[in-house]
Amino acid sequence: MKKLLITALLVGTFSLSYAQSDYYNDYRRSISDVNWQTVIADLLLSKTQANEIYALNDRYDNYNSWNKVYVHNPDRWREDRYTEMERILGREKYLKFKNKYYKGQNPVAVYNRNKNNDKRYKHMDKKVKVHKSKHGNGHH
């Protein structure tokens, strides 16, 4: 019985830390998936703005530093990061950035959607689509 309890505790701890690292991986991708030199050139950013972008990108250079801030609310990184981006770029340039890199969608929503793409529920998605098409609701 004791082994079962220990296993349950370990599994619980692991799944919690795995979810936390998923958020961190999204955070890292929000930096690594963008060529910041191109962004800086395209948006004609000043040296100060460029330096602030690089400082923002370097703010949490490892999981532990990121986790200290977001341990209780890992979702908050998106809001924090993109609010800061908007402050650095200014509203107009931020909208250009958003349109080019996130097709006009709020980056917070883009990364939020990624979080909801849980593989365990993929099969249910297909069932829902089949169900809709049977009833002639072809539009989303």
Results as ranks from 00 to 15, higher is better:
T48N: 09
A109K: 02
S17C: 02
H140Q: 06
Y27H: 02
L4F: 03
N106Q: 09
K100E: 03
N73K: 08
N64Q: 15
F14G: 03
L10P: 00
V11P: 03
T13C: 15
K129T: 14
N57C: 14
S46N: 11
Y94A: 11
N67T: 13
V11Q: 15
G104E: 10
T13M: 10
K119M: 07
G138P: 02
Q37T: 13
K103L: 10
W77N: 00
N35F: 14
L45N: 02
N35V: 14
M124H: 12
K122M: 15
R59L: 13
I40K: 00
Q49P: 05
S46M: 13
D33A: 15
R59D: 08
N99T: 02
K2H: 14
R91W: 09
S17Q: 07
N112D: 06
Y63L: 12
K96L: 13
R120N: 07
L10I: 08
E84K: 05
Q20Y: 02
K122E: 11
G136F: 07
E84H: 03
N114C: 07
K119L: 09
Q37M: 06
Y101V: 03
S17V: 03
Y54L: 12
V108Y: 03
S46C: 12
I6H: 05
D61P: 03
R87A: 15
Q105F: 10
M124C: 03
L5D: 04
N25Y: 11
K100F: 11
D61K: 12
I53N: 08
L89Y: 00
R78P: 05
Q105L: 13
N73M: 10
D61R: 13
K98R: 08
N57Y: 09
R59C: 04
K47Q: 14
R28N: 00
V34C: 15
E86T: 05
T38S: 11
K127D: 06
D118W: 10
R120T: 13
E86P: 02
V110I: 12
Y121N: 15
D61A: 12
S15Y: 15
Y70G: 00
S21I: 14
V39N: 04
Y18W: 11
H135P: 04
L89F: 04
R28Q: 07
R78H: 07
H140S: 06
L89S: 09
M124E: 04
S32L: 10
K2N: 06
T13Y: 11
N25E: 13
D33W: 12
P107F: 10
W36E: 01
S30T: 07
Q20C: 04
Y27K: 02
V11Y: 10
S32F: 11
N73Q: 09
V128F: 08
V39L: 07
F14L: 08
N114K: 11
S133E: 09
Y111P: 02
K115V: 02
Y23H: 07
N114Q: 08
G90I: 05
G136P: 05
Y60L: 05
W66I: 04
Q20I: 12
R120Q: 02
K98N: 04
L95F: 12
